[in-house]
Design a protein around this nucleic acid. Structure first.
Lengths: 146, 146
DNA sequence: TTTATTTGTGTTATATTATTACGTAACATA
DNA sequence: TATGTTACGTAATAATATAACACAAATAAA
């Protein structure tokens, strides 16, 4: 029987890993490593490396994603589901929230490109920057309502 | 008649912008801002900001792309063509080269997701990490030939 | 030409993000 | 026990990026 990291509850994490994961799960937006560190100082964390090491592990387990374009980290939206191949993010530049999405069509096209070009793909990052629906409404309120 | 930055030659760039662009065009792999700076010290550049400002401008003109996952910069592979909507990179972790690709199918799917979710997308980054064909061959040479 | 505006420059200092290097501790397992 | 692996804690430093200031050049309008 193959053992796979299935869900948050099923993986045995160390204290530091658990602290970081819980914090990210509680946050409604991605966090930088240093803001994670600041939030966890009361829990005894003191140095950046303590956070980076926990993040590395959590990312390896698929419980956390890194947003490359922001140097920030976010808890996986569906940690129980490892069937999804490819994950992407739509990042709102106004409120800072990141919407995670999965799309197998995109995954297929990209892996098709890779195999057609002899490229052995290990990981893929898709990040869309823009304005989320909620923030668009708010800005209409401000500019359009007179 | 609408004026658009068409090709390298047609845009009037300042001295610093030209230095940075020429260097990136001559490089066969993406470069960090600081390695650009080091290469251009002989040309009189002294401070990181001189490089970052040139890069900002060049990126705005579409002549340079930023690789988010590497904090590196690369000259656009087809600066004359602004018809292509979406650009992605396959980055070889062995040789460090970045292959630029464009795919309108991916672009359509992603913009479809965006409009379905009310997300106003401004820019998209797709970065695939792995091993390029050439580096796979070399590693076969090393490990497989006995 | 003068004036105003924009854009770019150069410099210093600093902020932010990430890693190297070192030594120790906890734990499993042979 | 001895051994290997993984995690921990700390200090120092590297790598990436921006803020703030003063000045110069190009541009366009008055």
């Amino acid at each position: 029987m193959k053992e796979v990291a299935m869900a948050t509850a099923e993986v045995k994490l160390t204290k530091n890993q658990r602290l970081v994961l819980d914090l990210l799960c509680a946050s409604d937006a991605p966090m930088s490593a240093y803001s994670i560190l600041d939030q966890l100082r009361t829990e005894g964390l003191r140095a950046p490396l303590q956070v980076y090491r926990a993040l590395d592990k959590l990312i390896g387990l698929g419980l956390v994603h890194r947003l490359e374009s922001m140097n920030a980290f976010v808890a996986c939206a569906h940690p129980a589901c490892h069937a999804v191949e490819m994950v992407g993010f739509a990042i709102c530049e106004t409120c800072g929230k990141a919407l995670e999405f999965a799309d197998n069509d995109v995954a297929e096209i990209l892996s098709g490109w890779a195999s057609a070009n002899g490229f052995d793909a290990k990981s893929t990052s898709i990040e869309i920057k823009g304005t989320c629906a909620s923030c668009q409404e708010k800005s209409e309120d401000t500019s359009g309502a007179e």
